[in-house]
């Protein structure tokens, strides 16, 4: 079973009565262990595509299967559950909760599957150890560097054991050496069978992926 299967997917927004077609018939399959980069300029539709692939949004046309389930048929609660169990997100701006320790940030997704505090902390500590931050678990975001914060975010994305990790410009706020080490971390996941999808406009970052998709005006214009 493919991790994600999009067939002729489109997404239209209504903005002040004007229809904006952000995606126009995109078809894409993500298999376990895929390492895929989606590139394109601002406004090309790559962020919209990532939101759809992550189950944050629904297509207005076509079919989208995530983990074999048709998102058009899912209730908001089922979509939330799908995001919790199947998808991990990494954002350009990290999106860590301030005033919250690395450990509790990483444990956050487990809150929504009803895990107890001890279980969350144990699993979060193990995951932080895995991303090389075992010594920083009680630190808060403002006590950490950008690279460390992004590692915390990656640990948070992985703590639920997702089959797909979606990263939106994960190195956009990092210097190139730090960015490279973050990418290496992501690449180590690919070897374990996690599908990693990067959204980026940085060609060097995209070049490291096994497959590249270039988007323009809501369509896939090139696949390599």
């Amino acid at each position: 079973m493919s991790a994600i299967e999009a067939t002729d997917v489109s997404r239209t927004y209504e903005l002040d009565g004007v229809s904006v077609q952000a995606l126009r018939g995109v078809s894409l399959t993500v298999e376990p262990g895929d390492y895929l980069a989606i590139i394109g300029t601002s406004g090309s539709g790559k962020s919209t595509l990532m939101h759809l692939l992550g189950g944050l949004d629904r297509p207005t046309g076509g079919t989208l299967l995530i983990g074999g389930r048709d998102v058009a048929r899912l209730t908001p609660n089922e979509m939330a559950e799908l995001r919790n169990t199947t998808i991990g997100f990494v954002f350009q701006s990290f999106h860590l909760l301030a005033r919250t320790t690395a450990q509790d940030n990483v444990g956050l997704p487990l809150v929504y599957r009803g895990a107890g505090r001890r279980e969350r902390r144990d699993r979060a500590a193990a995951m932080l150890d895995r991303v090389g931050l075992g010594h920083r678990i009680t630190h808060r975001p403002n006590q950490m560097s950008g690279g460390e914060q992004q590692r915390v975010a990656i640990a948070r994305a992985l703590v639920t054991g997702p089959s797909v990790l979606l990263a939106d410009e994960p190195t956009g706020n990092l210097d190139s050496a730090t960015g490279s080490s973050v990418l290496s971390l992501l690449e180590s996941l690919v070897d374990e069978g996690v599908a990693v999808v990067l959204v980026t406009h940085d060609r060097d970052v995209a070049a490291r992926a096994h497959r590249q998709i270039r988007m323009k005006d809501g369509r896939i214009v090139e696949t390599r």
């Binding site: 956050l108 809150v111 929504y112």
Partner: peptide, 16 residues
């Protein structure tokens, strides 16, 4: 709002 968005992204239901 950002915190709410993040919580939803990691699996919070509207009710949560």
């Amino acid at each position: 709002t950002r915190e709410i968005g993040l919580r939803k992204a990691v699996g919070a239901r509207p009710r949560d």
